[in-house]
Simulated scan of single mutants.
Amino acid sequence: MPSVRVNGVDLGIESFGREDDPLVLLVGGTTMLSWPDALCARLASCGRRVVRYDLRDCGASTTIDPENPAYDLRDLVADAATLVGVLGARTAHLGGVGVGGMVAQVAALDYPEVFSALTLVGTRPVGPGPVDEDLPDHDAAVIGALFSRPRPDWTDREAVAAFAADGAEQMGNDPQEARVTAARIWDRTPSSDPAVHQANQLGMVFSRIDCTPRWRERLGELDMPTLVVHGRADPFFPVGNGEALAAEIPAARLLVLDDMGTALRHTAADQVAAAMLAR
Rank of each mutant, 00 (worst) to 15 (best):
M1P: 06
P2N: 08
V6F: 06
N7T: 00
V9E: 03
V9K: 01
E14L: 05
E14S: 00
F16N: 02
P22S: 11
L23S: 14
L25D: 07
L26Y: 01
G29C: 02
T31F: 01
L33I: 15
W35R: 04
D37S: 12
A38C: 01
A38E: 13
C40V: 04
A44V: 00
S45G: 13
G47D: 03
R49C: 14
R52S: 04
R52A: 08
D54V: 03
A60L: 07
I64F: 02
P66D: 10
E67W: 00
D72K: 05
D72M: 01
D72A: 06
L73G: 05
R74Y: 04
D75Y: 06
A81S: 15
G85K: 12
L87I: 06
L87M: 10
L87R: 08
L87E: 09
A89E: 08
L94F: 06
G95I: 04
V97E: 15
G98I: 00
V99T: 12
G101D: 08
M102Y: 02
V106H: 09
A107S: 15
A107I: 09
D110G: 14
P112H: 13
S116L: 04
S116V: 11
L118D: 04
L120N: 09
V121S: 08
V126T: 14
V126G: 05
G129L: 11
P130L: 14
D134Y: 10
D134R: 13
L135S: 03
H138E: 14
D139A: 08
D139V: 09
D139W: 01
I143V: 13
A145H: 09
L146Q: 12
P150H: 07
P150D: 13
A159H: 04
A161M: 02
D166C: 07
D166Q: 13
D166R: 14
D166I: 04
G167L: 01
E169Y: 01
E169T: 15
Q170S: 15
D174A: 00
A178Y: 04
A182Q: 05
I185F: 01
W186K: 00
P190F: 03
P190W: 10
S192H: 14
P194A: 10
A195M: 12
N200D: 10
Q201T: 01
G203N: 02
R208H: 05
R208Y: 08
D210T: 06
D210N: 13
C211R: 03
W215P: 08
R216T: 11
R218S: 12
R218Q: 15
L219I: 09
E221Y: 11
D223K: 14
V229W: 01
H230P: 09
G231Y: 02
A233N: 15
A233V: 08
F236Q: 15
G240A: 12
G240N: 14
N241H: 07
G242V: 12
E243W: 05
A247T: 08
E248C: 08
E248F: 01
A251S: 15
L254N: 08
L255S: 12
V256C: 15
L257D: 02
D258A: 11
D259H: 14
A263L: 13
V272T: 05
A274W: 04
A275F: 03
A278T: 12
